[in-house]
């Protein structure tokens, strides 16, 4: 569904990505794990056109989307939930969701999606009129996910959904991600919480200072000696 070939990104003189290749097959959960500054966010931002690519190609459903503008990419079904959630704090929950479904002009389809998001996140339904800025971190993450679902993504990319959340909420969020995936949405997940990510992933890539150093199924990577040492804190 998504294919990245030889992606390089330079920020000024710094090489953030040094030519990575990735493959995200339809219907799967793919994860990209790695430490801070490894280039995970840069990868996702490049896919949606927020970061300028130095070289390399990105294909989505067989089409070259390299260098296309963000709005067109989003409208074609790739939705990114950015790091730090980035909900609109001055807007109500309902308004945030409306903007999530901004591109859908058909009122009926829009209402169905809203209904769907409210079933996945009953907590949002209770608080549609509340200002999003008053939400707790976990609630904001649910809103960010709900807002992304309003765009009816084919490929949902999540940047550190567990960041700064309590372990119990992290568990909840990861369950929701699996549910979303089962409903037919392909998921590309990046995480510092490698264990949680690899446990739900069909396939994983390990990124280290701009290079992919390892890849394999979630189970394989979880049992890999180096991964255990470097990312899971298990000797």
């Amino acid at each position: 569904m998504l294919k990245i070939e030889g992606l390089t990104v330079n920020y000024g003189g710094i090489k953030a990505l040094k030519g990575i290749d990735m493959d995200v097959p339809e219907g799967k959960i793919i994860t990209l794990v790695g430490a801070n500054g490894a280039g995970k966010s840069t990868t996702l931002r490049s896919v949606v056109g927020l970061t300028k690519i130095t070289s390399g190609k990105i294909y989505y459903q067989g089409q070259n989307i390299t260098g296309k503008n963000t709005v067109d990419i989003v409208r074609s079904g790739i939705v990114l939930v950015p790091e730090g959630r980035r909900i609109f704090p001055n807007l109500t929950v309902y308004e945030n969701l409306v903007l999530g479904g901004y591109c859908e002009k058909n009122k009926k389809i829009f209402d169905e999606r809203l209904e769907h998001v409210c079933t996945v996140f009953p907590r949002l339904k209770e608080r549609l009129k509340q200002k999003a800025g008053t939400f707790s971190g976990g609630e904001q993450q649910m809103l960010a996910l709900g807002r992304a679902l309003m765009a009816n993504p084919k490929l949902l990319m999540l940047d550190e959904p567990s960041l700064g959340l309590a372990p119990l909420i992290v568990k909840n969020i990861f369950e929701i991600i699996q549910t979303i995936n089962k409903s037919g949405v392909t998921v590309l997940l990046i995480e510092q919480n490698a264990k949680a990510a690899l446990e739900i992933a069909d396939y994983g890539y390990v990124l280290e200072t701009g290079n992919i150093v390892l890849k394999g199924s979630g189970v394989e990577l979880l049992s890999n000696e180096n991964v255990r040492k470097a990312y899971l804190g298990i000797a």
């Binding site: 709005v71 950015p82 308004e95």
Partner: peptide
């Protein structure tokens, strides 16, 4: 109103 807080997040919603 969303733009008054976050241009990039707005673009990620497909807002022109």
């Amino acid at each position: 109103r969303a733009l008054s807080k976050d241009h990039e997040a707005a673009r990620l919603m497909g807002i022109d």
